[in-house]
Simulated scan of single mutants.
Amino acid sequence: MSTLSWRKSSFSDAGGNNCIEIAIDSVDIAVRESFEPDTTITTTQITLRDFIRGVKGGRLDHLLD
């Protein structure tokens, strides 16, 4: 991935150091935590979409117990 333009969540704290950041290039999506900017994971738009739908649908709630 080339130089990326990172976007922070609108729910991040005022300092911007407590959030998930996402950057998109032509193929992949990179995800990182703002307090650990050198560590990123990459995924495809389809995979991230399916993950978000699963979270919204409660399919991962059992992991919080």
Rank of each mutant, 00 (worst) to 15 (best):
G54S: 11
E33N: 10
L60N: 09
G15C: 01
R59G: 12
E21V: 06
G57I: 01
E33G: 05
T3M: 13
F11V: 00
S34P: 03
M1H: 07
L4T: 04
V27H: 12
L64W: 03
L60K: 05
L4I: 02
S5L: 12
D65N: 13
R32H: 06
L48G: 01
T40K: 07
F51Y: 09
I52V: 15
T40C: 10
T42Y: 11
E36D: 15
P37Y: 00
T39I: 14
F35M: 15
A30D: 03
G15L: 07
N18F: 00
V27I: 10
G58S: 02
F11G: 00
S26V: 08
L60Y: 15
D13G: 15
L60H: 11
E33F: 10
K8P: 00
G16N: 04
S5T: 12
D50H: 14
G54R: 07
G57S: 09
L60M: 05
D50L: 15
I20Q: 06
R53I: 08
I41A: 03
G57V: 00
S12M: 03
D13S: 08
D25A: 06
I52G: 06
R59E: 07
N17Q: 13
S5Q: 14
R32S: 09
T47A: 15
L63Y: 06
K56I: 00
S34K: 05
L63N: 03
L64C: 06
K8F: 03
S26N: 12
D25R: 06
T42D: 01
I46D: 13
D61Y: 00
I52C: 09
E36K: 11
S10R: 01
W6S: 01
P37K: 07
T42Q: 11
I29F: 07
D38E: 13
I41R: 00
D65T: 09
F35W: 14
D13M: 00
F35I: 12
R32I: 04
A23F: 05
I22E: 10
V55W: 02
G57Q: 07
N18Y: 01
G15A: 14
S9E: 05
A23H: 03
T43C: 10
I24E: 13
F11N: 08
L4Q: 06
S10F: 04
R49Y: 07
A30Y: 11
V31A: 06
T42L: 03
F51W: 10
D50C: 14
R53A: 15
S34M: 01
T3L: 09
I52Q: 05
I52Y: 01
S10C: 00
L63F: 10
R7G: 01
G54M: 04
A30K: 14
D13R: 02
L60G: 08
L4N: 04
K8M: 02
G16F: 05
S2W: 03
F35E: 15
G58N: 02
R59V: 04
I20P: 06
R7K: 08
L48V: 08
D13H: 10
T39S: 11
V31I: 15
